[in-house]
Computed example of a mutant assay.
Amino acid sequence: MPQRNIDFGKFGARGIKGSEAVARKLDELAGGIATPVTARRGLMARLHYLTRSGKSRQAARDAGLTVTDRTLKAWLEGKRSPTKANLERIDRAYRSVRRQNVARHLLARLNREGRGTRVEIHPLNQSQVPRPLQRVVEYRTMNVRRWDRIVDTWAADDPQGLDDAWGDTIVDLGSQWGQYEYVTNIGFAA
């Protein structure tokens, strides 16, 4: 895409990639366990989620939680505690399995039988950019009707794929779509 920002922030602009903002919002919509994994309650909730069926156990293994069933049982019974590295693996596996489990439902909510979902795009912050170098960038809204590729790459935890999918979506903004590659926030509700 010709309008990709190569040296973002060189003159003081601040923001995050639009695809990262979309991923954050999708994570928020997916919900999940709010208690941190470092607390006993959060750990137990994640372990129960990851071990409630054979399918979820396999998904947890695929997501990187490769401990023995004996170790999992000891964690669940409170006889042993996971190491810091294993806590991170548990949390990462939980997020991955949760994304896979809610992706289909979330996709149906966002597509709304072809009507799509209205997306609000808040432009990047240029308050630190010298006045002559500032661009005129305004708040924009658009209706996204096809979320399939965006949700699929989000569920697969593929940041580059999500960036490409989001880039293909914002082209619908017209000739100024490159100004919205980096944003302060993206909002939508489903």
Rank of each mutant, 00 (worst) to 15 (best):
E138S: 11
L72K: 14
Q126N: 10
L76W: 01
S81Y: 14
Q134D: 08
G78Y: 06
G78A: 14
N143G: 03
H105N: 14
R146Y: 09
L76T: 00
V136H: 09
K79D: 15
R99C: 04
L124R: 00
G116N: 06
T71A: 10
V97N: 04
Q126L: 11
V119W: 04
L76R: 00
L106K: 02
Y94V: 04
R118L: 15
E120M: 06
Q134E: 08
K84H: 14
R95M: 10
V137Q: 08
L76N: 01
N125S: 04
Y94M: 05
V129W: 05
A108M: 13
N101S: 13
R89V: 10
R135E: 10
P123D: 07
E77N: 14
A93H: 03
R145S: 08
R99Q: 05
P82Q: 11
D69L: 10
R112W: 00
R115W: 02
E138D: 15
N86P: 08
E77Y: 11
I90H: 04
R131F: 05
K73I: 15
L110P: 02
Q128M: 12
L72G: 15
D69P: 06
R92A: 06
A108Y: 11
N125C: 03
E77F: 10
R70L: 12
V144G: 02
K79V: 11
V137N: 08
T71P: 05
V97D: 00
N101E: 15
N143V: 06
L106Y: 03
L107S: 02
E120Q: 12
T117Y: 03
V102I: 05
Y94D: 00
R70E: 13
H105D: 14
V67E: 01
Y94P: 00
V129N: 06
E138Q: 09
R109M: 09
L106E: 03
R80Y: 07
A74V: 14
G116A: 07
V136I: 12
L107M: 03
R118I: 14
R109Q: 13
P132K: 01
V136S: 15
V129R: 06
V119T: 10
T71D: 05
N86K: 15
T141P: 04
D91C: 03
R140C: 05
A74D: 07
A85L: 14
A108Q: 12
Q126A: 13
A74P: 01
K79E: 15
L106V: 10
S127R: 11
R70I: 15
E113Q: 08
T83V: 10
V119F: 11
R135K: 15
R145Q: 14
R80H: 11
H122A: 00
Y139R: 14
E120K: 02
T71L: 08
Q128S: 11
N86W: 09
G114V: 02
V144Y: 03
R109L: 12
E77M: 13
W75D: 12
E88T: 14
I90W: 05
R70W: 07
W75S: 15
W147E: 01
A93I: 06
V102T: 02
T83P: 12
V102S: 00
D69T: 13
T83A: 15
R109H: 09
K79I: 12
Y139T: 13
L110G: 00
L87A: 04
N111L: 08
T83F: 15
R109S: 09
G78W: 07
Q128I: 13
K84Y: 07
Q134T: 09
A74M: 07
D69V: 11
